[in-house]
């Protein structure tokens, strides 16, 4: 376990860069990780996905799968891949301060 400085805050991360304590997460941290992940601006559409993932993550203890997000947040698959290009599964989880999704679908 290591720590990392993100948006002027020190947070705990694992070896893959996922935050390990979702309570350390802030919206500024989300924006900073997003920019590292190539998502330069977080629009209301991005937040809809992130807020939903936070809700599921805090409740269940792990990040939602992509299908859970499309069904639960009502964001179509195509739009989700457009908002978080090149690997939305990991990107959404990382930006939301959660671990990797644990389901397959």
């Amino acid at each position: 376990m290591t720590t990392k400085e993100i948006a002027d805050k020190t947070v705990q991360v694992n070896e893959e860069g996922f935050m390990t304590d979702p309570n350390e997460w802030t919206q500024d941290i989300a924006a900073a990780i997003a920019s590292e992940e190539g998502v330069s601006e977080l629009t209301p559409e991005h937040w809809k996905v992130i807020d939903y993932s936070r809700e599921v993550g805090l409740e269940s203890g792990s990040a939602p799968t992509l299908r859970n997000i499309t069904k639960g947040a009502g964001v179509p698959t195509k739009e989700l891949f457009g908002l978080f290009p090149k690997g939305p599964a990991k990107k959404v989880a990382k930006i939301s301060g959660l671990g990797k999704p644990e389901g397959c679908v």
Binding site: L66, F81, K86, G87, P88, K90, K91, P101, V105
Partner: peptide
Amino acid sequence: LVMGWAALGNGI
């Protein structure tokens, strides 16, 4: 289908 979906989710 399962592996393809996982691959897309990981940016492959």
